[in-house]
Nucleic acid binder design. Structure first.
Lengths: 199, 199, 199, 199
DNA sequence: CATGAATGAGACTTCATTCAT
DNA sequence: CATGAATGAAGTCTCATTCAT
């Protein structure tokens, strides 16, 4: 039941946080650019911190839902176990990339939040990691099947997380690359090759 | 020819920046903890920004030198082209990891700096990328030999950069993992597999 | 629609600026003596400079209005063109002197402002000059009638401006002289003689 | 026995004081622009104030000497008392204007000094006034002869002082006017007319 | 729900001056 | 005589937050 003004504040905050940084953005500026009085901001959020965290949570949830809901039906089942696993992972992968590219501001905010020392969370609790919880399952399965290399899970998850960051960062900085198949396919190819068992 | 006090300031700044964040660290606190008057800080650095950038440059240079100088002699030459290339890259890889693990504060500062929106540099000009300039050479060579996959260079460099971040972040957060061969070797294995030509 | 606090700040600023000089007066002192928090001052004026300029403009306007409005009805019309012109100019002259004597603080502030190199305006745009715009008209008329000497207008205006300063400075420094007719009349006599055609 | 460095400091100070104002000019900047160490400035002048006052005194003396020495021989004696007096005063007048026009920086510094509230001297002790001490004599003589109007001396001196300021200010701001006879002659004509007995 | 004037702690920076070399 | 690193008080300005309307 978010009021119109409250949403204006959240939208403006997202924009300014990404442009100038979270700490560097004054609450007064958010209020002003949202066409709202200073007091109004603190009427909806008791602190600046609460505003930031609320914004974070809403985006995080949005991302989680987007990935888990929309990916499932895109898997191409196959007789070949390897192909099925690869298809599953590829589907999630694309979904995640797609989300980042269609919500660059939100994606950048998540990055900023994760790196802000004031909010710094252990990597283990990060959105990316937790959102990609489904991966654990897929990877474990792949390892048992012998398709994926038997490496320690924390290492693998970190690998997934950072490879995702690598690709989205590159594509958001230079969106024209996102259009080129050599980049899109190459990105997944590297990701996949890093995971599979050595031939 | 850095004065003693100037170095004290830089050392203290590094410590506090990593502990509390760059923006959140007051110049007055740096000066106080460095046993120096406020004015002294501004005698050596005309700005807080200049202090930060100076610190960044010095660490960046240190890292660059450490990697490029110390790695060269660790390569194991071989008759096999593939093995030579792998050995070269592995040597740089280990050197880079080693540096991060022995200078965790400096490494964390580089991370913070790279993510601080006030200093945000295009990722392309980042330390990691520029320091790893030597990689371009090695990768190009590997691609011509058919050892490494022929993927766009920006993608490959990004992959290298972020995989390095993934591993160092994990190891600095949980240093005990750094001791385990399964992690050390696994990290490089994933990295290498991601680069090579599909079998 | 000036808030009460804003006016307190302006009043206090005027007092302190004249007592100690503009540059030498700290914003904190103004706020304190105005029984207002530091932040309040900067809530109403984004700068110290803006405070100073606002004060200047308000006083300048007050002076302009006082001279142009209140002088008109004091002119003694006469059949003699010379007498009418002299009466007009005398009226403005007295009005201007009167204003200075009844607002010594404001008058002194205008002086300080005009001489402060940080705000230094070309003399041509100064209050005195611009406020006395009506003079141009009167002088031109007098010159055409042959009553006033045909001298270059910039020279004449400067003469008026500085003679006004000469007299007000003297009277404000030694107010007892202002009471003596020999001074009051003498001052205007010199002023007028300087303007008229040589006999 | 002024050292070379001391003179460099004085010269630079004069320049910067006029450009930026006395208060606004930092001693460190003076030293730097004079190619001298900070300490050196305080080696020659125990205070900033002493530097300022020293500069003031030297310029004041220079002006006094210039006027009193150089003017005497330019008087054109005549049988006519009126002409002699006028010639005397005109000679001083031109000398004073000449000095201002050939030392604009010094002239501007005197102005700034006289108006700086930190150094503010009663007008009576001002350079201009004291330098023009010779005027008192000439004016008194003129009043006794009936050539000059019998007005109170303080008023007359003030008139002289400010008319001088009026003219020099105008000419220094717009030096091209100084070349035009209509301005030069007009300036003195107004001055003289203001002083003489009403016809 | 909404407003915006008011607050005051605290941030960054400047600067006259000192002193050991 | 000359140097310039060092000092710390003081100045300007920012900002999250409160509260009366």
């Amino acid at each position: 039941m978010v009021t119109e003004k409250k949403q204006q504040i959240l939208d403006t905050a997202l924009l300014l946080f990404v442009e100038q940084g979270i700490q560097a953005t004054a609450t007064a500026k958010i209020a002003k650019q949202a066409n709202v009085a200073t007091g109004t901001l603190f009427h909806h959020f008791s602190n600046k911190q609460e505003l930031v965290v609320t914004l974070y949570r809403s985006i995080k949830d949005e991302l989680s839902q987007s990935i888990s809901q929309d990916s499932a039906d895109k898997v191409h089942p196959s007789d070949n176990q390897v192909d099925t696993l690869k298809s599953t992972i590829k589907s999630y992968w694309h979904q995640a990339i797609e989300w980042a590219m269609s919500h660059p501001l939100k994606w950048q905010f998540l990055q900023q939040f994760a790196n802000d020392p004031q909010f710094k969370i252990s990597q283990q609790q990060d959105v990316m990691t937790s959102s990609m919880a489904f991966l654990v399952e897929a990877v474990e399965q792949g390892q048992q099947q012998g398709v994926l290399a038997r490496l320690p899970m924390p290492l693998v998850l970190n690998y997934c997380h950072y490879h995702y960051l690598a690709v989205t960062t590159l594509f958001i900085e230079q969106p024209e690359l996102f259009q080129q198949p050599s980049y899109q396919d190459g990105a997944f190819q590297m990701f996949w090759q890093g995971l599979v068992t050595k031939p």
